[in-house]
Amino acid sequence: MIVAAAAAMAAGGLAHAQASVVRLGTVAPLSGGAAHAGQANLNGVRMAVEELNARGIAIGGQKVRFELLAEDDAGDPKQGVAAAQKLVDARVHGVIGHQNSGTAIPASRLYSDAGIPQISPSVTHPRYTRQGFATTFRMVADDVQLGGMLGRYAVKELHLRSFAVVDDRTAYGQGLAREFAEAVRAAGAAVVDQQFTTDKATDFSAILTAIKAKKPDVLFIGGMYATAGPMLLQMQQLGLYARLMGGDGICNDAIVPLAAGAVGENRIVCAEPGGFDQAQQPGLERFHAAYRKRFGSEAEGISVYAYDAVNLMAEAMVQAGSAEPKRYLPVLASMQGFQGVSGGIAFDGKGDRKDPLLTLYTFRNARRATLAVVRADASRTH
């Protein structure tokens, strides 16, 4: 069936009856330390695909059925490239993913070479959309915006003065830590120590002992909750009572059990790309209710962006009258006014989302609580 559909597409797109299947690929870490977020990503994609099929979408006058091809990259760049090659070989019409910067960036070249549009619901490394590929798009703010905003907020709003910065050596962690440190210095505060670990490490006693001697107000971690949770626990065990700050990688309720009681009250400040204003609340509530009914759990922010990415890609196909990548890609790049659960969606010339929101969080009573929703700084210089 798939072979016949591929042959029909080669002969002329969706014109043939056998070419009614539109294949969407998605890649996320469904195993490893970030599997919780990866599953939330996949659930958002799956829910959108199921709803599209229930509605009965027509493209170019022909009813189509969306087929989902899901791959696990485990957050590993080599596995991510292998997953991307599988989707290219399967001749998918579009890709939602990858979730992590370290896998999305190398995979993006394969999709670009094949001409397959790729929308990441969560990648934040600036390089992702700065490679000159017409096929790469992102749904959220990048690390320049996120790290810079966190640095400025820590100094100007929280009035903190000394910072230690740690990264996990991933593309995501290094980029975010760099932007945070630059913003802190630009705001007039001091970075008193910089250390690094890995995203597989579990013992942080050496770097935390070195940091404790510098007595920082804040330890900033460029990494994921799987690293930050145990690190926070070890900070407490060592008597290092600095606040913990980080990006969207640590902004997850899964950090609470990993920190084993060390989360405290208002000790963590983190931020996620994205946010929702009052006008979006009715749609957001409907989404969360539908997600709970379908999966029996609460949706993560990434679920919303993955869901919106699928619907945006499908709408571009509808407007183009074709699911062929070369036909709907220009429509996707130039779409204006599409309203998703996360608000209006449009991309700039690089594939970055225009005027994205960022949300700041803390943790209280072992649960995440919103501090503020802000617009990303539009005055990026790099």
Rank of each mutant, 00 (worst) to 15 (best):
A290K: 12
R185Q: 13
K78F: 01
P330K: 09
R375N: 14
G264Y: 05
A6R: 12
T227K: 00
I255G: 02
K78Q: 15
E182D: 14
P77F: 09
R380Q: 14
V191M: 04
Y361P: 03
Q236H: 13
R23W: 03
G97I: 04
R23P: 02
G25I: 06
E157C: 01
L68G: 11
A346N: 08
T170S: 15
R178A: 13
P29H: 09
G44L: 10
Y307N: 09
R286D: 12
L238R: 09
E182V: 11
S108D: 08
Q18Y: 02
Q237E: 14
D248S: 07
G247P: 02
I119W: 03
G343E: 03
R91L: 08
T362V: 10
L68N: 12
E51Q: 15
G102D: 11
D143V: 06
T170Q: 11
A316V: 04
L68I: 11
R243V: 01
R55K: 15
D199K: 12
A40Q: 13
V191D: 06
M235E: 01
N266F: 03
A90M: 08
P117E: 09
L160I: 08
E315G: 03
N252C: 07
A289W: 02
Q336W: 01
L233E: 12
A15P: 00
G102K: 02
A271Q: 03
M235F: 08
R46Y: 03
A289D: 14
C270Y: 05
Q131F: 07
R91I: 10
Q99D: 05
A171T: 13
L69N: 10
G38F: 04
L332K: 00
L42P: 02
S101Y: 06
S322D: 12
T198G: 07
T359A: 13
I345V: 15
